[in-house]
Write a protein that binds this DNA or RNA. Structure first.
Lengths: 219, 219
DNA sequence: TCATTTCTGTTGTAAAAACAACCGAATTGT
DNA sequence: ACAATTCGGTTGTTTTTACAACAGAAATGA
């Protein structure tokens, strides 16, 4: 476990917690470490889970198979990222996805009930971890709501306007830089890249905005 | 405050907490009650918020104005619902929406830091409330991810397949009932109702599924 | 530096969705 | 029971998107 301390320190959940405190917390929380080889499942569709997990090494794919067997990759988890936090609630249904190791991977399991219950004075940082965890989920929640706001627009143009407006607000300026290239933006908004590129240029020609690479300016 | 105890008992955050305990917790948490008349803002775009709120009476609209001033209604909050929980994180940016009273409304504000910090022995239910809050956000998170999964599909048919597959899994049967009528399902998936109705019938004609009202069966 | 790859914009075509309008059946309320 | 409303399905038209293919510019790398 010791060798993973540096990566644990960088996770959102242990932000601001010292090496020693992390070690004592891990035992206090009854953390379990498990390794997986390529293709092995960390979580399976249908499972009820009670642990939050952090990926320490390797990478995982979140996969989903529909009723007729078509598989799609919903996302990728890289080292340092937390997952499973959305499934640990009492009344949460079972996992609807598989989580599969893409390569040799190491995962740490943390029982969410033990995190949320107060503990002996031995781990003074417990409260901080609870706050970290809460803020991490809260933050994720916020991002999801925003993305949903863009995606619920009907046309590519409306999606772009929604996304770019939000970026302008967030960066508090009509000029701003986005963290995506065209293909990534198209994937994020779930539209076709060329259609989106086309629409952006039309909007530019209509005088709605200017752009160069990933720098934009709303007019 | 006393008259709102029944509604507070029904909220997710105070689930399982007795009347007396709610009263003592509210003071322990420094809860503040505020009323709004129609049209008044509970939260304004740009604000940084530190409180989770619960609507006790009335109803609120979540509104958003884009860069060019077009307003859209993102959602409605009814009595008993919690909101703001996605914006309370340290590094969370400012609110990007307005929250406006649709009618005379009463709102209670709870400082999230005080909820997450442990307190004196006076409120024994504190740990339960933290867990409730955590599970509520976790649950919301899960629903958002699922909805995003459907909405990221390109065609109406794919969205339907994604949604219906999930329902079948969740209810563990190829036959199941959905909680929406056609218009609501269309709104949920952000597609046109008639186009969706059309697509459903095509899928039925192709032998993919059967349905009657909101009862479906996948084949 | 030169070859290769990635990125972005452009175009045309086929497919799909949005929209509007309408109808009959079911439901609701009085 | 009857009127009014809601609901679901259908059709045709217009708009928008997806898809495929291509080209020039920029970035990358050997």
């Amino acid at each position: 476990m010791q060798k993973y301390i540096p990566i644990l320190k960088k996770t959102k959940i242990f932000a601001g917690v010292s090496d020693d405190e992390i070690v004592s917390m891990l035992s206090c929380l009854g953390a379990r470490l498990k390794t997986y080889e390529k293709g092995e499942c960390v979580f399976r569709q249908g499972e009820h889970i009670t642990d939050i997990t952090v990926l320490l090494e390797g990478s995982l794919h979140i996969q989903k198979d529909d009723y007729w067997g078509n598989r799609s990759i919903l996302g990728e988890i890289s080292a340092g990222e937390m997952f499973g936090e959305a499934y640990v609630a009492y009344d949460s249904g079972p996992m609807l996805n598989d989580v599969v190791a893409k390569e040799h991977s190491a995962v740490i399991f943390l029982d969410v009930k033990r995190i949320l219950s107060s503990c002996s004075s031995a781990c003074r940082f417990h409260a901080l971890v609870v706050q970290n965890l809460f803020f991490a989920i809260s933050e994720k929640n916020r991002k999801l709501v925003q993305k949903l706001g863009h995606m619920s627009k009907r046309t590519t143009r409306e999606k772009l306007i929604s996304y770019l407006s939000e970026q302008a607000k967030k960066q508090n300026s009509a000029s701003f830089t986005i963290p995506f290239n065209r293909q990534q933006l198209a994937d994020f908004l779930a539209v076709d890249r060329s259609a989106m590129s086309n629409e952006l240029c039309k909007m530019r020609d209509e005088g709605l905005l200017e752009f160069e690479k990933n720098k934009f300016r709303l007019l």
